[in-house]
Design a protein around this nucleic acid. Structure first.
Lengths: 148, 148
DNA sequence: CGCAATAATGATAATCATTCTCATTTTTGA
DNA sequence: TCAAAAATGAGAATGATTATCATTATTGCG
């Protein structure tokens, strides 16, 4: 789901962090690399296990920091584990098909015209109830091959 | 968000429960009544506090049962509280605008044509990765008036 | 009717993903 | 080179949700 090079992503993330007084530490670089390489959103544990120099508490803490500055998006489905992916702007805008049984997630995209209509409808509805919209999500919920 | 009468909903829920060997107990009737009356998805605590004869553990347990039989949908946003609403089929299909700050949720609907296009795109994508789709969700994420 | 058998209840204990704490280490900028 | 500020990591704490289990309600059958 990468649309920018590793270098571009690094630069963007570094700038997002610096704007809020954070540093782009080695741990954070590692998280970004893992998420950039992954072809689907990962749980904290999946990330921790991908490198043996990552402490669980640091991964949680840093994913939160990265989420705060807008570099990472957290996906919550059921009440098991959260999953994390690089935020819109660092990857191509996309949507998810989620297995409600095992939590596995696959990415997909909508035609641009559909995406635009959706945005328009959403913004109209939001203004009526005086919400400010930051992002949207469109998820298909179902069962993956392994679980059915 | 009601599209059926209380009596119709009761009948549907009773049948959904019976199909799986569950009873439509007083507690469950009460939950359905509260959700049917509510104009937005409610947290467990909001439901518990709405009647003083509802035990917290029973509400959690029964919302799970109602979710299993397809009468109630659980909405998870951040990692605070889950919220619950009557499932599609018992209410009109709709979507949510969610405040990422306080968790408050407002309902809205999409034009039918858009809804159909969405479904079609989703199903096409799902079949490629061999997922079976049960439902979809389209949520706007942002900030409500109170929180901005 | 009684009367098992099965399900539901509710108070409380247990679970477990996530967050917090804090002493130590690293980085920054003057 | 040196404080000040930030990050780290191991372990403790938190808190929404789930599990336990003795008690109570409901069902269906003879």
């Amino acid at each position: 789901m990468a649309s920018l090079s590793k270098a571009d992503v690094d630069e963007q993330v570094a700038s997002l962090l610096r704007e809020k007084g954070h540093r782009y530490s080695n741990t954070r670089r590692m998280l970004v690399r893992v998420l950039l390489t992954a072809e689907k959103p990962l749980t904290n544990n999946q990330i921790v296990e991908s490198h043996d120099s990552l402490a669980q508490s640091s991964v949680y803490r840093n994913l939160n920091v990265l989420e705060e500055v807008g570099a990472v998006t957290r996906i919550v489905t059921n009440n098991e584990f959260s999953r994390y992916e690089l935020a819109d702007g660092l990857t191509e805008h996309h949507h998810h098909i989620i297995c409600t049984s095992c939590g596995d997630i696959t990415d997909f995209s909508l035609p641009l015209t559909l995406e635009k209509s959706l945005n328009q409808s959403l913004r109209t509805a939001a203004s009526k109830v005086r919400f400010t919209i930051d992002q949207h999500r469109f998820d298909g919920l179902g069962t993956c091959v392994a679980c059915q």
